[in-house]
Design a binder for these strands. Structure first.
Length: 451
RNA sequence: GGAGGGGUGGCCGAGCGGUUUAAGGCGACGGUCUUGAAAACCGUUGACCGUUCACGCGGUCCGGGAGUUCGAAUCUCCCCCCCUCCGCCA
């Protein structure tokens, strides 16, 4: 029941296959800081144990030792080569014989090539190891083995008391004729829906409502491509591990985004941002596409788990020292949507055993669904710290300081539209089968009820 | 799909095998001059890896990859991206 927005990050850890993006520029594909891992293996190992995952750092450290000595040796040889090449150039300019030096350098060239080959080899191995390491949980992330040990942080709103049996959203929708699952199955397949009439309008009203609310808080609206290349999927961490969760096109190859996080975070891939531009805040509406492989039998009915769904996302690029304040603010912004819609919800701090691969801390927002008598995930707000930024190479420069640092990236749904439709239908259903529309949504919806 | 042009430092732009350790310009920063500013003049001006307590030193980077060579921004091959025109289509 927990997994929705971050289903991707929570898929079982697969073997890393040494994926190499078909790329026209080099991607930095480390995740945790290699130097940090090399120098504090015991500490990292302990931190990752909180996720119930064991890693053997021995082979990695051995490889790194080899790699560094190769780097040193080939750097020295190259230094020598550069110097001698200059001498050769000088001799030739004076029309003197340089054949002895040239002969010497032939051997050096061979040796350098050999070392480069071995260096590349060790780099690849080290990289594979680092790629498989998940992010280190933040100290405030509760330690726990799985979703049963997530911690409820706060609760808002009182679930409504019904004087009639509360229906599931698909039953409500059927009576109203606003969602057509059967015809969706005909034209596409299972896990698709046709929104119709007031249903389609509700979907559209929610998008606009959420985007307007987010932009009023300083988020810049973007409408990005929903097909992206392999580099972008690698930058945010969907590739190589979670390829099975993605839809893709055949020729040419593009990936359909599973969340707006992918194109929006990648907006600044391989950029160095100026300090005064931060924080950068984006909000984006996009359709999202997920294979939902491995979730057979889960939420097969209704709108909860679809191959295609709409979502409004929020993404932030911030300075490291403020990222946890920004996470609280981001979560509050997502909560604000639920409060304005007057939908009861609770906020869960995911425990170390349940947070996503790239996340250091995650809050899930769970909305009350009377039809199921349960709270269900409707938003997931995460701080990735520098984990994604390192991978996607997004840095910033402090004004007046030399050098660069990685930004911290955060994102959260605000909100998943389909699940918001579910929540409205179930929470606002009336005895006569109609559904009233929350006050805040009426200007967007253009009516005060459905039916 | 067809034809052509192009990818060089924050930006513009030269370079087409060895005084390029990437010319020159713009911008930015520091200084001189000035009551202050402008102008002028002088200087500085990236990223990454390794090494060092530090100053520094070394290496790599001219779209990406492979090759030729003692030596590649410069030559060869493959790939990617951008632009222009034609065709086709929304």
């Amino acid at each position: 029941m927990q997994r929705f927005v971050h289903a991707l990050e929570c898929a079982p850890v697969l073997a890393v296959t040494g994926y190499v993006a078909g790329t026209h520029y080099a991607i930095i594909i480390t995740m945790l800081d290699p130097k940090l891992v090399r120098e504090n293996p015991e500490k990292i190992k302990q931190e990752l144990q909180k996720r119930n995952q064991e890693f053997d750092f021995g082979p990695f450290l051995e490889i790194e030792k080899q790699r560094l000595s190769l780097v040193r040796e080939s750097d020295e040889l190259r230094e020598n080569r550069n110097k001698v090449s200059e001498e050769i150039a000088a001799l030739k300019r004076r029309k003197q014989d340089a054949s002895t030096l040239i002969e010497q350098m032939q051997g050096v060239a061979t040796r350098i090539k050999e070392l480069e080959e071995r260096q590349k080899n060790t780099e690849q191995k080290a990289r594979e190891f680092l790629l498989a390491l998940p992010n280190i949980p933040h100290e405030s992330t509760p330690v726990g083995k799985d979703e049963t040990e997530n911690v409820e942080v706060r609760k808002w709103g009182q679930p409504r008391e019904f004087d009639f049996p509360a229906l599931n959203h698909w039953d409500i929708a059927e009576v109203l004729g606003i969602i057509d699952f059967d015809r969706a199955a005909k034209i596409a397949g299972a896990r698709f829906a046709v929104m119709r009439g007031a249903g389609a309008r509700l979907e559209r009203a929610l998008m606009n409502f959420m985007l307007d609310l987010n932009t009023s808080k300083g988020y810049t609206e973007v409408f990005p491509p929903i097909l992206v290349n392999a580099e972008s999927m690698t930058g945010t961490g969907q590739l190589p591990k979670f390829e099975m969760e993605l839809f893709k096109t055949a020729d040419p190859l593009f990936y359909l985004i599973p969340t707006a996080e992918v194109p929006v975070t990648n907006l600044h891939r391989q950029e160095i941002l100026e300090e005064e531009k931060l924080p950068i805040k984006y909000t984006a509406y996009t359709p999202c596409f997920r294979r939902e492989a491995g979730s057979y039998g889960k939420d097969t009915r209704g709108l909860i788990r679809q191959h295609q769904f709409n979502k409004v996302e929020m993404v932030k690029f911030v300075k490291p020292e403020v990222s946890y304040n920004e996470l609280e603010a981001l979560t509050n912004d997502a909560e604000d949507i639920l409060r304005k819609l007057e939908l009861p919800y609770r906020v869960m701090a995911l425990c170390t055993g349940d947070i996503g691969f790239s996340s250091a801390k995650t809050y899930d927002l769970e909305v009350w669904l009377p039809g199921q008598g349960k709270y269900r995930e409707i938003s997931s707000c995460s701080n990735f710290e520098d984990f994604q930024a390192r991978r996607a190479d997004i840095r910033f420069r402090r004004t007046g300081k030399k050098g660069t640092e990685y930004v911290h990236t955060l994102n959260g749904s605000g909100l998943a539209i389909g699940r918001t439709v579910v929540a409205i239908l179930e929470n606002y259903q009336q005895k006569d089968g109609t559904v009233t529309i929350p006050d805040a949504l009426r200007p967007y919806f253009g009516a005060d009820k459905i039916g």
